[in-house]
């Protein structure tokens, strides 16, 4: 089976000014994104990840290289009909209601009139937007805008969903909701490509990651593999006394091991925040 996205030797130059000075945004990038996984594309601002996604979606033409989506050349109607996209900081027509927007996008994506109602309701349900679906988009909060954007991206049941900074500007509760949606998509066998610089979130939801810097790929692999340090171990011990500690260190030393640091475990601030405001929703 072909990859969800296959990028081979992609280079993208932008011309600047009348004299046509070149700015290389992506430099000889090759990537294979397997199907059915959540794939994180990481990197600092300006590293070329959004440009890469735009080239993949056919919104920007490549200077060199080949790209295919689900086995089809990118930028073809066939490839795009099987792809959903949520751009960074999406803006939708404020006068439309959420349901109207999703219906509009469904029709543009080729959903048949007979399947329209089911498709729209499913997408709204998955994005947890059913209750607010009839309100004008102008009244939505940032988190709701992202969720309705997610709904419009998946309304035609695409095999590949591309999300560009889906949690930018969204509070942790909203971020967690989007994370759940991503997992739900993966559970349905979809491929999700996530472009973000929020590393904590990527670590939580992604199966594989690629890290880009200055237009080049610097690291690619499974999250566990790239993060794991095989020469270090962490043990969490409860009710440890000074005597117990000394005994444990002596026992480890007898086997040639050495304790290099002992600290108290900490919760992340995000975990604490989510624990405190659990159940609250931005509506």
């Amino acid at each position: 089976m072909s990859s969800a996205i296959s990028v081979r030797r992609l280079t993208k130059d932008f011309q600047i000014g009348i004299r046509g000075l070149k700015l290389r945004a992506v430099d000889n990038l090759s990537l294979e994104i397997p199907r059915g996984q959540v794939y994180g594309l990481l990197g600092p601002n300006g590293c070329g990840k959004s440009t890469t996604l735009k080239v993949v979606l056919g919104l920007v033409t490549a200077t060199a290289g080949e790209i295919s989506i689900l086995g089809h050349p990118s930028a073809t109607a066939e490839a795009r009909s099987r792809t959903g996209f949520l751009p960074e900081a999406p803006y939708f027509h404020k006068f439309l209601s959420g349901r109207e927007l999703v219906t509009y996008c469904a029709r543009l994506s080729g959903v048949l009139p007979s399947d329209l109602t089911t498709a729209v309701e499913d997408a709204l349900g998955l994005a947890a937007m059913t209750d607010a679906a009839d309100r004008p988009i102008g009244t939505y909060s940032k988190g709701m805008l992202q969720r309705i954007g997610f709904a419009q991206a998946i309304v035609h049941d695409p095999e590949l969903v591309i999300l560009d900074e889906p949690t930018a500007g969204v509070d942790p509760v909203g971020s967690a909701a989007i994370g759940r949606m991503i997992h739900a998509m993966r559970d349905k066998g979809k491929t999700v490509v996530l472009c973000s610089h929020l590393l904590g979130q990527v670590e939580q939801v992604c199966d594989r990651v690629a890290i880009m810097d200055r237009g080049k790929l610097v690291l690619e692999g499974r999250v566990e593999d790239v993060l794991a340090r095989r020469d270090r171990h962490v043990m969490t011990i409860e009710a440890m006394t000074p005597a117990a500690r000394e005994a444990a260190e002596a026992a480890l030393a007898a086997h040639g091991a050495q304790v290099t640091s002992v600290t108290h475990p900490r919760r992340s601030l995000e975990d604490l925040f989510r624990e405190l405001v659990t159940g609250s929703r931005d509506a």
Partner: peptide
């Protein structure tokens, strides 16, 4: 400017 075109043109819309 609002990037609505990005959303729309990423769909099978020529």
């Amino acid at each position: 400017d609002n990037k609505t075109a990005l959303t729309l043109l990423a769909k099978p819309l020529s």
